[in-house]
């Protein structure tokens, strides 16, 4: 095996172990996110009047999406379930 091949093999091995660690981090992040989303769902049910159905809000114009500030953001479950979290994902 040449030096280059040895170096590549080492790189691939390190990448594999990093992948495991990152996956663990992803699961921790997902646990937090999933809990947050579940709580917003519970909160919404608690504040809705009894017998009310979920009525879609009428569209409203908001300020443009430049900046994406947390204070301007709302939970969009539909987007969360559909879209990709990497907006410039080129593989789609």
């Amino acid at each position: 095996m040449s030096d280059d091949e040895r170096e590549t093999e080492q790189k691939v091995r390190v990448r594999r172990w990093k992948r495991r660690l990152k996956a663990a981090a992803a699961l921790a992040l997902a646990a937090a996110a999933g809990t947050f989303l579940a709580c917003t769902r519970i909160e919404r049910r608690r504040t809705a009047a009894p017998g009310d159905r979920t009525i879609k809000e009428p569209p409203s114009v908001t300020t443009p999406d430049a900046g994406a500030d947390i204070k301007d953001a709302t939970v969009d479950r539909e987007e969360h379930r559909k879209g990709m979290p990497v907006k410039d994902n080129l593989l789609e």
């Binding site: 699961l27 992040l29 997902a30 996110a33 989303l37 769902r41 969360h80 990709m84 990497v86």
Partner: peptide, 22 residues
């Protein structure tokens, strides 16, 4: 199905895309 599963999907997708894939 639940939001937690979708969060798992998205979290790993995001992390792995910005680090290894692209």
């Amino acid at each position: 199905p639940n939001d937690w599963f979708y969060a798992v999907f998205r979290a790993w997708y995001w992390i792995q895309h910005v680090t290894d894939v692209m």
